[in-house]
Simulated assay, not measured.
Amino acid sequence: MHTMWKGTISFGLVNIPVKMHAATENKDIRLRNLHKECRTPIKYEKVCPNCDREVTNDEIVKAYEYAKNKFVVLDDDELAELKKEQADKAVQIMDFVDMEEIDPIYFEKSYYLSPNEGGAKSYGLLREALEDSGKIGIAKIMIRSKEQLAVIRIYQNTLVVETIHYPDEVRDVKDVPNVPAESNNDAKELETAKLLVDELSAEFDPDKYHDTYREALMELIEAKKEGEEVTTAEDKAKPDNVTNLMDALEKSVERAQKDDEPQPKRKIAPKEKKKMAK
């Protein structure tokens, strides 16, 4: 499993060298955009609308837009220094809380933690402490240039880092429109709804749920491949130097032949003849 981060998790005076690995992966099927006419993948270019030309990566700087069309430019070295300051810090568990105290709306992405060299004993110590106490750890961690609030918990005998949103990243539920303050359902409707909930209640089994759209899309793709309903991007026509050279030679010969042809004599007007005679 690919290691995406190495660091130290600490609680109190205990330091645990760990490696972090992505616990989930995106299974979405990515479709490319092709030019309908020639079946060539569309190319997206970075173009400056003011200079009306394509720009290279070394011509691009990062900036924060604090007002419409007003920017504060941030130097790459300044950003790199900030990232280094945060990345060099050990991940300190700040608090231990009950899992039930955190609403699922805060949870974002999961990562597995494995012990790095010399960290197996302290790794097991934290795992056992969390398991016996029923608590989870709250910490801050730098992941991909962003400081994240995170939960450290146990999942099937493995420590997991679960990034969670900061409170100001969760929108106020009061801003959700048209939510009724009270339910005006009669007792019979409520009893019927509860009966339906009971009928559909079951133990959670993740293996029974499938992405049916992704499966159907892959079946369609495979069927088209087997039926040879495939397309290949056309190669860009390359200039034929031989043909171009022959064209140039033939045109040159034609032009030379025209230059060698005797030119028709210009008729001399009577007035011009009199002038020449004088």
Rank of each mutant, 00 (worst) to 15 (best):
R171F: 09
Q148R: 14
Q156M: 02
M246K: 02
A150I: 15
V160H: 00
A181N: 05
L245F: 12
D172N: 13
S252N: 05
Q263I: 15
P167N: 06
Q148M: 11
V160A: 01
A202K: 11
E229Q: 05
S252M: 07
T232K: 13
D175S: 15
L220Q: 12
E219L: 01
D207P: 01
V179Y: 05
E228M: 01
V173N: 14
D207M: 13
K236A: 05
L195Y: 05
Y213N: 06
P177I: 01
E169Y: 04
D172P: 01
N244R: 05
T163D: 13
R255L: 07
P239N: 07
I268P: 01
K274P: 04
E215Y: 06
G227H: 05
M218K: 08
V197L: 12
A223T: 11
V253K: 06
E234S: 11
L149F: 09
P239W: 02
N241R: 12
K174M: 14
D235H: 04
D235P: 04
T231M: 08
E234Q: 08
A237M: 04
L149S: 00
A277D: 12
H210M: 10
S201D: 09
T243G: 15
D240C: 00
L245S: 13
N184C: 03
A269L: 07
V176T: 15
N241C: 06
M246Y: 02
V161W: 02
V170I: 14
K188E: 07
V242C: 12
K275Q: 13
T163S: 14
E147Q: 04
D205G: 00
M246H: 05
N241F: 10
K188V: 12
V230G: 10
A181Y: 00
K238C: 04
K258H: 11
V160I: 04
Y213L: 11
I152F: 05
Q263F: 13
D211P: 01
P206N: 08
N244T: 07
R214P: 03
H210I: 13
E169R: 05
Y155S: 13
D168A: 00
K236Q: 06
T232R: 01
E226T: 11
V179C: 14
E147H: 04
K224E: 05
V253C: 00
E254F: 08
E147F: 03
N185Q: 05
I221V: 07
E189K: 08
K236S: 09
N157H: 15
K271N: 09
I152D: 00
R171H: 14
E254H: 09
E229R: 04
A269K: 08
P239Q: 04
K275I: 10
K238L: 02
E182K: 13
H210C: 08
R171G: 12
Q156G: 02
E226N: 11
